[in-house]
Simulated scan of single mutants.
Amino acid sequence: MAHIIVVGNEKGGAGKSTLSMHIATALARMGHKVGALDLDLRQKSFGNYVANRRKFSEKAGIELPGPDYHDLPEIAQDALQPGENIYDQRLSAAVSMLEPDNDFILIDCPGSHTRLSQVAHSLADTLVTPLNDSFVDFDLLAKIDEDGEKILGPSVYSEMVWNARQLRAQAGLKPIDWIVMRNRMGAQQMVNKEKMGKALDKLAKRIGFRVAPGFNERVVFRELFPRGLTLLDLRDIGVKQLNISNVAARQELRELIKAINLPGVSVDF
């Protein structure tokens, strides 16, 4: 069966779609078959990212490795059994369609609490949560005291992940391997950055996730989206000499993929 990777965080603007595209492309470049779904049915940032990649590849006449992206299939309301939820069935049908031909299925969740996101989290073998390096975003994981040092208790997203873990346990499935990565970190070692690191380490032990190396704030991530490109594609489009920032960003991605530690993946880019 395909290993299911869910990229989730109920707060918008955390970098989920950028992260999803880079993970999926890295796996594809290493020879793995990757199916992909975007559960943000309104905005479809990840789906648009993949579509931009397809258009650019065709226009440039080059072939870029990437995920096999699909929209959720439509299901007629009259095809549902009593008590069945249409969103559950659409997601189930999509996963069933992708499983036979892929090593991994990557699911990008919306930045809000939806039925689809809840179900996707319960399907996750690996859950990756990007978190902007701010206590505003940290609040989604846990409540913290005014000094930013004492954890007062889990917050809404952590509780949703806990519920997903309970559902998997009841179904006899393996526990979710939950990874939190810090995103858009500043280059300087500021007090807030240090406090965030300590708070995440404390929370990780308390509610059971791993903290992975994250991404620093870089303009290049925003520049790549219109062409559907990732950091790993730059040489393919004629960039002969990567600048220092791009080299550092590739190394950050490499360290993240290593830390996620997916089955059968040997990082070689």
Rank of each mutant, 00 (worst) to 15 (best):
K150C: 08
D147L: 12
L140S: 15
D233T: 09
R210W: 00
Y49M: 13
K33T: 15
Q241Y: 11
L106W: 01
G13P: 12
I179L: 07
L200P: 07
A212H: 02
A120W: 03
V7A: 04
F269S: 04
R222G: 01
G264N: 05
R182C: 11
A36V: 15
E84S: 05
G13I: 11
E63P: 02
E159Y: 09
Y157A: 07
F56P: 00
F56H: 11
S155N: 15
M1H: 03
F269D: 04
A187V: 05
K258L: 03
A93E: 12
V161I: 15
S158E: 01
G12P: 01
V95P: 01
N9V: 02
R250V: 12
K11D: 13
V220Q: 11
V119S: 03
L152A: 04
I4H: 00
L203C: 14
S112N: 07
F56Q: 02
F138R: 05
K174E: 15
V267D: 06
L242N: 10
I144H: 02
M30D: 12
M30R: 06
N163A: 15
D38R: 04
G35C: 13
L141I: 15
L152N: 06
D78Q: 05
K143T: 10
K202G: 00
K240M: 03
P65T: 06
D177E: 05
G8E: 00
V7D: 06
A249M: 03
G31F: 14
S20M: 01
A24Y: 10
G83S: 14
D88L: 12
H3S: 09
N246S: 05
Q241I: 13
V219Q: 14
A164S: 15
N102D: 13
P175I: 08
R227F: 05
